[in-house]
Nucleic acid binder design. Structure first.
Lengths: 251, 251
DNA sequence: TGGCACAAGACGTGATCACAGATGGGCATG
DNA sequence: CATGCCCATCTGTGATCACGTCTTGTGCCA
């Protein structure tokens, strides 16, 4: 990403409309159950920010969009509720994408620091050359996305970059817990892109992590990841307090 | 627990039989949904070790035992699967309580060290006098259970002791993640009781934690909790490698 | 008597239906 | 004209049924 980059990055047209326009009917033919495909579809939609904070999720509407009955959708929504990716609105038990406040953001940041720091440190000792190539590639793609202003491509490879590293730590439960944390922040990360200078700082950290992994320097990798996490959390906090809550609600 | 205690603690008659004998039909009358009650019932049965590692869970059998149809049970089982408390066996997607191996045990121990250490450190600064009384009470009950050899009472208050401390940290997400870890080790903790000396070391750590919390000494509280976790993990590891896997399977 | 095949039962999955509660818009009334 | 009420319709929930798969037990044949 060159110097003097544009202050923000537009979030794409599909993100400013209702998130359901991006959801496609599930494939349905392979061995996986309908419920699992619905779950993965909705989970991906949350992580990539297609479903926006405060948005209501209706069982029948989701079932119609995904081309199934309500049964698999109900199970998938319940799973996402357990993971914190969705919440029930209360008396009618309507599902919606949670609005996370500053205190929840701080909590998630603290847990991320511990877990992702641990995973990165371990990954530095265990990462293979093939995995390292994929990490470097994700870095390059992020940089290209930052240059062209493609928010979707950037976010996708940002998650990919982190995911590859944590996968290299070979701790399946740790990876799952980290993914669960990203599920909560997923609808929000798009907001951080509007913070001027966020991309520069973030990409600097990413390259620091990549270099530390390459040289097997575990403490350096950990501290670089920590800088990335805390920096993103700070940017997100700034955006949250300058953006009124109502403006983040749909309709 | 007095000196010269018995080398092990019997696990209770109900734990050596099939776990289902302890499961009661759900209450069903209050405002909560049937699915939530089924979930909590099964979750509690897992955490307290009533359901044993390797045991199969059938939808229809569970529904009949709990007095509901299969629909709420299916959702509850899927949630527990997501949390790692259950796993699906394969082609027929049969649910069973996972058999955790030494490597999974080490992973869970490492995550527990980070998360529960963080929570305890925070709790030392935030715990109220009322919460501290409950912690002390749980300690006393554990000690009494250790003296009389009541495994159920001990395990219940062991979880209660830890849960009270982590609740005092006022990090709801952190608490949930810790509970999820306990869900995986729950079916196993009973095994650690058979290790000679386990109770002595564990109770010593518990009182150290209690004292550190009372004096507000966050680092001391953290290190005491860490000793408890690593000690229990070591005992469990010893039991696991001296006990053949088949012996832990039911029937 | 041993091995194989077929049938019956159990398994999870997903669609459909009935039901209770919440909701919003339109109509009647003050 | 404003306000309150009622009904049509939405919501999630849970029970039931149909379907494909897998396991198990039994009977038949070699």
């Amino acid at each position: 990403m060159g110097p003097g980059a544009e202050p923000g990055m537009e979030s794409g047209a599909e993100a400013s409309r209702g998130g359901w326009s991006q959801i496609r009917p599930i494939a349905f033919e392979d061995g996986k159950t309908a419920q699992a495909q619905v779950y993965e579809t909705l989970r991906g939609a949350l992580m990539s920010g297609h479903l926006r904070p405060g948005e209501d999720i209706s069982l029948r509407q989701a079932a119609a969009t995904l081309g199934t009955s309500v049964t698999p959708v109900r199970e998938a929504l319940r799973q996402l509720e357990i993971e914190g990716g969705l919440e029930v609105h209360g008396r009618n038990r309507t599902c919606r994408v949670p609005l996370v406040g500053p205190e929840a953001l701080a909590e998630i940041r603290d847990i991320r620091v511990e877990l992702e720091g641990m995973a990165t440190e371990r990954a530095a000792a265990l990462v293979t050359a093939a995995q390292l190539r994929l990490v470097t590639n994700a870095c390059r793609l992020m940089e290209r996305a930052a240059g062209t202003g493609d928010a979707d491509l950037y976010l996708e490879n940002n998650w990919r970059f982190h995911s590859l590293i944590y996968r290299a730590a070979r701790r399946p439960r740790l990876l799952e817990m980290i993914e669960r944390l990203w599920l909560s922040t997923g609808p929000l990360v798009r907001l951080a892109l509007s913070k001027p200078g966020h991309l520069d700082h973030s990409m600097e950290c990413h390259w620091l992590v990549e270099r530390a992994l390459r040289s097997g320097d575990a403490p350096a990798a950990r501290s670089a990841i920590l800088r990335d996490i805390t920096g993103a959390a700070r940017d997100l906090e700034d955006v949250l307090e300058t953006t009124p809550t109502d403006a983040r609600r749909p309709r």
